[in-house]
Amino acid sequence: MSTLPRRRLLAATGAALTGAIAGCSSDDGEDEDESENEAAENDDESPDEGETGSSTEVDGTILGEITVNNSDDTSHAVDVIVEFDREIEAWKTESLEANEDVTLERNWPTDPGQFRVTARLDQEELVEVTPAKWNEPNCLNLLVRIDSSGTLTIPGTTDGGPCSDGDADSDAEE
């Protein structure tokens, strides 16, 4: 019989603690819900302010050309992986002789989106870039470059190729 009162005591204590904890957490939850609702209302107001030229109007970046350049005096193999919205759109392995360039066939979406380009030199470490590195431009061309010391880098440019606005073509003809 001595176990029955102890069980009742534990059950009563557990119920009291559960009630106290639930009461405290519900008060905190209401405060959090109110602050979340206020933040959501503030977010809803932002588009109505008519911001022009801001990066919030862009639904992503257009991935233009990707050129692979081997400026080293030795041959190298480069893997280039293009992902849009976390899905692989293109995976190309290029074997380049010394001082050779190759522009990849554009097998990825031509519409703006969220993308990541990952490159790997000779089955070694991966180098990854996203448009955020260039402050989310409207369009971005990439150069997967092997320098003369055999180091892989991925610089980018926002003009030329598919990123041209028509003026680059006339400049090239001059």
Rank of each mutant, 00 (worst) to 15 (best):
Ala132Trp: 01
Ile21Thr: 13
Ala77Met: 07
Gly19Cys: 09
Thr130Cys: 05
Ala12Gly: 08
Gly150Met: 08
Glu41Pro: 00
Glu57Asp: 14
Asn99Ala: 12
Asn37Val: 05
Glu30Phe: 10
Glu57Cys: 10
Thr13Gly: 09
Gln114Asp: 08
Asn141Ser: 10
Gly23Pro: 04
Ser148Asn: 09
Gly14His: 05
Pro137Phe: 01
Val80Ser: 00
Ile66His: 03
His76Ala: 09
Asp85Tyr: 00
Leu140Met: 07
Trp134Ala: 14
Asp72Trp: 05
Asp79Met: 06
Glu57Val: 11
Glu97Lys: 03
Glu45Trp: 01
Ile66Arg: 02
Cys139Ala: 07
Glu45Ala: 15
Thr67Gln: 13
Asn42Val: 04
Thr56Cys: 10
Asp73Ala: 14
Asn99Asp: 13
Asp122Ser: 08
Ala98Pro: 01
Arg116Tyr: 02
Asp79Glu: 10
Ser149Gln: 14
Ser25Thr: 15
Asn138Trp: 03
Ser54Met: 10
Glu36Thr: 12
Pro131Ile: 02
Arg86Val: 02
Leu143Gly: 05
Val129Leu: 05
Asn138Thr: 07
Glu128Tyr: 03
Val68Trp: 01
Thr52Lys: 13
Leu142Tyr: 02
Leu152Thr: 11
Ser75Phe: 00
Leu96Cys: 06
Arg116Phe: 02
Glu34Gln: 11
Ala90Cys: 05
Gln123Gly: 09
Asn99Leu: 12
Asp31Tyr: 07
Thr118Cys: 03
Ser26Lys: 09
Ile146Asn: 07
Leu121Val: 11
Ala20Met: 14
Leu121Glu: 05
Thr74Met: 06
Gly50Leu: 09
Val78Thr: 09
Leu121Ala: 11
Ile21Gly: 09
Asp59Thr: 06
Arg145Phe: 02
Asn42Gln: 12
Glu57Ala: 15
Gln114Arg: 13
Asn141His: 01
Ser149Asn: 15
Pro47Glu: 15
Thr118Glu: 10
Val78Gln: 07
Thr56Ser: 15
Asp147Cys: 08
Trp91Ser: 10
Gln123His: 10
Asp44Asn: 12
Ile62Cys: 00
Gly150Glu: 06
Pro47Val: 11
Leu63Ala: 09
Thr18Val: 10
Trp91Leu: 07
Asp48Cys: 06
Arg106Lys: 14
Ser35Asp: 08
Asp33Ser: 12
Val144Lys: 06
Asp111Lys: 08
Val78Ile: 15
Lys92Cys: 01
Asn141Gln: 04
Ser71Asp: 15
Ala98Ile: 04
Asp111Asn: 09
Ser148Lys: 07
Ala40Lys: 10
Asn37Arg: 13
Gly113Leu: 04
Asp48Leu: 15
Thr118Leu: 10
Thr61Asp: 00
Asp28Thr: 12
Thr67Trp: 00
Leu17Arg: 05
Ala119Glu: 03
Asn135Phe: 03
Ser35Thr: 15
Glu65Lys: 05
Trp91Ile: 05
Glu100Thr: 07
Lys92Ile: 07
Glu89Met: 08
Leu104Phe: 04
Ser95Leu: 11
Ala16Val: 14
Pro109Glu: 03
Pro112Thr: 04
Asp147Tyr: 03
